[in-house]
Design a binder for these strands. Structure first.
Lengths: 410, 410
DNA sequence: TTTTATATGTTTAATAACTAAACAAATGAT
DNA sequence: ATCATTTGTTTAGTTATTAAACATATAAAA
């Protein structure tokens, strides 16, 4: 909850160990002497820290640094096989479970479309089975699983570890963290999907560590994940970034949340579907292709059908107008359009950008990068990063750790 | 810029010293033993830390703690007279300069209305003279001045210490920090006025230390200062919270920033003036009362003139609709309406609240407090807090300080 | 009044994480 | 073969902490 208030010798070691890990993450394999040089600590100190990190096998010695004069240094790196991570992406139309090692190599994956009116309990039972399979796989590889992170659409209560309310799905008070932690005996993290996407871009995107970033997750729902000065914005209850359900259009369509003219009812999956139908476009039946219905929209769009393109251009423009508000509010250096419909927005990037630039103060738009994420896996990436960060911020050193596995992220 | 990477014994002392100061700030006078108890450090350690803090006279011993059993403790407190702070509030219609001691007692003040088309250079010359008087006063009291903080309307570049652009005033690239630091030889901080207001409420408001807070500064301009998880949102260039110039009304009035239908053109001082004029209300001439023209609006409103009240109700409602967007975006536990027109908004709090509640998801509005700041001095308070914080975060301990007076805030 | 209990603040010895400097080891250059 | 250079380890010294003992000051109990 509150900030640490009390510091002793052991905290120095912990803080410096984290700095060493961050160096290795950022600057690839390094010798002890190189780390000492960049951090301004002595080689003796780094040797001691590294000894501890080697003992818990979070770091490994790789090879000798050939070439230069003098004794070649023994290079160190984060040990990709020190353990595994499970990431779960869960939204109204689809779920995915991914197992990786700490080196972010995918070891195993599972995914499946969901029916439009699926109920929470059944879906979760299905996912638990999938997670169990992932854990089995991890165990067979002799990998300790560091944690599970679930990206979820809606108002996610991270502390309680539950979905408080899905304004689009209608789900209410669905618990997860406590059940899973007592079942699997490892830390479980729960994140809003847009927050997860932002975390993913922040860690693995084109410019890792970018300090001011707005990530828009466009799919069935519409949410924002925002990094401000290097920190992810969460808010009092963790519900920050619920921009999908902000007023966008006077006398607009009634939204699933009860209000009228929400941004998401115009540009979310249902809105696009509605606009396409109005334009005379007819959809193939769901299930005919094994794809979920949100993916279907993306696929149709990317075929280049002119009717679809016309609709998407309007959507791009409306996306830009809303994005401009976020830019004025957050003054980011990058805005990323992601989510399961993000890919389709690549087609209308000009419309998005022109709407953004006409609606922002010139001083703020000037240094702004507008990026459409090509990956489609940002949420999963964010989950991996969340668990990875929990290790980096609180490495399993010898003494004076936090009790058991109840690690603290911030 | 970047986070600290290297830690040694001296850093522990510094971190613990900061914790001691924070305890004293939050929980009034305390004995060494009480501090040791709450922080979980030993009395011996606290004694050593306090010895250092007494040496630089940032802490003082006050009286004995009478009453309980056992040897009475010698109470300690932040020494209100360890030095002084200068706060400057500067906006289009008015400036104020305030000198306080570290105990936040006002020692001296100066203020003056500004003409509507004042030019930056002349205004700054006037203010520099005022600051010089404040410094003289401080010197006569034998108070070392810890720093000056200026709250400024517009896009304030805190690192460069200049006003990059005032969308309402039209001022561009007005430098300040460097000039003043070389002139006065003490640290100079520059803040956006809404940011300063948020800092003021965060430190001295009804619930000090509240971690998620949206502060709206309503005056000639309209900006937001936002605390997210205890951190003030600044953004890439420090321009975050420029919500005044976000699109609010289709086919609205042309704004001074060049765009159309900005939020501030509806509810800012000029907007209210326009609406009042349209309602057939005529203003007294400026200067007739010594009040500036923004204060005049506030005064007229508070007289209860029914024409004015009708206009204000519409403004309150429009304020609420915009505020709702910020609430969805930031999920704060409190929203504060402040600035030089904030006071007048007390009259229409019901309109503000009903607009907010009809435009937010129930889960987010539930625990929300809507407060209209009665003070009118939030910006000044924030400046005081900014300098105060720079002392608390980097107290002038014996060894290993940052060089000279170039203190670092974060 | 004297004794006992309790709490405060200081002193002392031990511990741990750092630094500085010396040293052993491995390579390239002369 | 020797020297210069760089790496990683070892050793002694420093310092901010802890734990425990001690001196001090008050209230409560005998």
């Amino acid at each position: 909850m509150s900030a640490k208030q009390r510091y002793d010798r052991r905290d120095i070691r912990r803080l410096n160990a984290v700095s060493v890990l961050n160096q290795l993450r950022a600057n690839g394999p390094m010798s002890r002497a190189m780390i000492a040089g960049t951090l301004g600590l002595t080689r003796a100190t780094i040797s001691n820290i590294v000894k501890e990190l080697l003992e818990v096998s979070i770091v490994s010695e790789t090879e000798y640094n050939e070439g230069g004069a003098g004794r070649p240094g023994l290079l160190l790196n984060l040990n990709p096989d020190s353990g595994s991570i499970i990431a779960v992406d869960l939204n109204l139309s689809h779920f995915a479970v991914v197992l990786t090692n700490v080196g972010q190599d995918t070891l195993w994956r599972d995914h499946s479309p969901l029916l439009r009116d699926a109920n929470p309990e059944e879906v979760l039972v299905q996912i638990v089975k999938s997670v169990e399979k992932a854990l089995d796989f991890s165990a067979k590889q002799n990998l300790r699983c560091y944690g599970i992170c679930v990206a979820w659409a809606g108002l996610v209560d991270r502390d309680q570890g539950e979905l408080a309310y899905g304004p689009t799905s209608g789900w209410e008070d669905v618990p997860l963290k406590r059940d899973w932690e007592s079942r699997f005996k490892i830390p479980v993290y729960v994140e809003n999907e847009a927050h997860a996407g932002a975390i993913g871009i922040h860690h693995f995107g084109a410019r890792p560590g970018i300090r001011n970033l707005v990530y828009l997750s466009l799919g069935v729902g519409l949410g924002a994940g925002v990094y401000v000065d290097g920190v992810l914005l969460r808010g009092k209850q963790g519900f920050a970034g619920q921009v999908g359900h902000t007023h966008f259009l006077n006398n607009g369509v009634r939204c699933s949340c009860g209000k009228q003219g929400c941004w998401v009812t115009e540009i979310g999956a249902s809105g696009i579907e509605r606009k396409l139908t109005a334009a005379g476009f007819t959809f193939p039946k769901q299930g005919s292709s094994g794809m979920d219905w949100v993916d279907l929209i993306s696929e149709e769009a990317l075929t280049g059908n002119p009717k679809v393109l016309l609709v998407l251009r309007e959507v791009g423009s409306q996306l830009g107008v809303g994005a401009a508000r976020l830019i004025q509010t957050f003054n980011p250096s990058m805005i990323v359009i992601g989510g399961r419909l993000g890919r389709a927005m690549q087609l209308v990037q000009p419309q998005i950008e022109s709407a953004i630039f006409s609606e922002t103060l010139p001083y703020m738009a000037e240094p702004l990068e507008v990026v459409v994420s090509p990956s489609g896996e940002d949420h999963i990436q964010g989950c991996i990063a969340t668990v990875f960060d929990s290790i980096m911020k609180n490495p399993p050193l010898a003494a004076a750790q936090e009790p058991e596995w109840s690690l603290n992220l911030n």
